[in-house]
């Protein structure tokens, strides 16, 4: 069975935020929703000061702590969809317990929509697709949290499931350089200029992601939590420093 995984090579990543932008464009995220973000850290002091950065998508954990806490089963891990963790927007009640339980801070609640607002279709009558909001993706799927986040629910990265799900069955890797898989590659992977991101099947021994994890000793973020992410990091910089309060000037 397919188990989608991502590998991010921090020695290649330049922190350009192209992945963040591509994600926002692909998924129509609202302001405040950063399904994909790059976090910057400055560590140490002269003469050993360094600036590091960390791209952070949802880890799609093998043992996700957000799933068990959800009182409505709105958050679920779909093994038939490659082990991606989804939020069913038809079931989410906006209690935000999953946001508390996620150790990676990759769940978002951007409830800016008013309770009462005019229906755009009444304001601008016409024919054809005139949904509110005006843009609606052809693959919108509320059950998997794909589309524009409605009011009062939690949203998160879906590994671009609307693209990934269209990939040919049994494919080992989704690579933007391969014309056959280019269209099915997640937006952040496809857009990455230094090719720091790889996406493939962790259950397929032949996949490039497995080779990279094995050869370059891939690590998982905050592995002590037991969540076992399906996102691996290569290179230096995955050792996220512990929180320290900024020095008072």
């Amino acid at each position: 069975m397919t188990k989608w995984g991502m590998v991010i090579d921090l020695d290649k990543c330049t922190g350009c935020q192209a992945c963040t932008t591509a994600c926002a464009m692909e998924n129509n995220t609202l302001p405040g929703e950063n399904w994909q973000d790059v976090l910057y850290y400055s560590e140490g002091s002269y003469p050993t000061a360094k600036l590091t950065w960390l791209p952070r998508p949802c880890m799609q954990c093998e043992n996700p702590s957000c799933v068990a806490v959800c009182p409505t089963r709105a958050t679920y891990k779909d093994m038939d969809a490659g082990g991606i963790v989804f939020v069913d927007w038809n079931k989410c009640i906006g209690c935000k317990y999953c946001m508390i339980a996620c150790p990676y801070g990759v769940r978002f609640y951007a409830d800016e929509k008013p309770v009462v607002e005019p229906d755009v279709r009444d304001v601008f009558p016409g024919t054809g697709q005139l949904h509110a909001p005006p843009y609606q993706g052809p693959h919108d799927d509320a059950v998997r949290g794909i589309g524009i986040q409605p009011k009062g629910v939690v949203s998160k990265c879906t590994f671009c499931y609307h693209k990934v799900s269209q990939a040919p069955a049994g494919v080992a890797d989704l690579d933007e350089d391969n014309p056959e898989t280019k269209e099915f590659t997640p937006a952040c992977v496809r857009t990455c200029p230094p090719k720091a991101r790889y996406f493939g099947d962790l259950d397929n021994p032949e996949s490039e992601v497995n080779r990279l994890i094995a050869d370059q000793r891939g690590v998982r973020l905050k592995d002590h939590t037991g969540n076992r992410p399906q996102v691996y990091y290569l290179g230096s910089g995955a050792d996220v420093p512990a929180y320290q309060p900024p020095k008072k000037s």
Binding site: A68, P71, T72, C92, I93, C95, K96, Y109, K151
Partner: peptide, 18 residues
């Protein structure tokens, strides 16, 4: 976020792990 939805979603889904 959705208080009225809660009334039917919780009993119908029985997430006893939560």
């Amino acid at each position: 976020g959705h208080v009225f939805r809660m009334l039917w979603v919780i009993p119908l889904n029985m997430q006893i792990e939560s």
